[in-house]
C-alpha cells in the first residue's frame, strides 16, 4: 500500500464515519431550532406582545391603539417562577 492508500484507509474512513455520526446527532439542531428556549440560558430576543385579532374580540374591549393614556388598573392575578 502506498502512503496515500494508507492515509485514506486509516485516516479518511474513520474521519468519514465520525462525520456521519456527528451529522446524525447534531445535524437537525444545526439546521433549524424548533425549540430555542432552554431554561437557564439568557433570552436575547426583543420583547414582543401578542394580542388577538381584532375580529376575534366580541365587544369593544379591543386594546387601544398606541399613544393612549393608561385606561385600566391591575386588580388580581398570579405569579410564578421556574
Amino acid at each position: 500500500m502506498s502512503i496515500v492508500q494508507t492515509l485514506l484507509v486509516f485516516v479518511g474512513i474513520p474521519a468519514g464515519i465520525i462525520a456521519i455520526i456527528y451529522v446524525a446527532v447534531y445535524g437537525k439542531s444545526m439546521v433549524r431550532q424548533p425549540n430555542r428556549y432552554r431554561p437557564g440560558r439568557p433570552w436575547e430576543y426583543a420583547a414582543s406582545w401578542y394580542v388577538p385579532h381584532p375580529d376575534a374580540v366580541v365587544d369593544s374591549g379591543a386594546p387601544s391603539p398606541s399613544g393612549t393614556t393608561p385606561s385600566t388598573t391591575a386588580v388580581g392575578g398570579a405569579s410564578g417562577e421556574w
Binding site: W43, A47, S48, W49, Y50, P52, A56, V58, A62
Partner: peptide, 19 residues
Amino acid sequence: ALTLSSRETGLVFSVYVGE
C-alpha cells in the same frame, strides 16, 4: 389559542414575552 380563548370568553387575552 389567543383568538379562540378571547372569542370564547369575551375577555381580551394578550401575551407579553420579553424582559
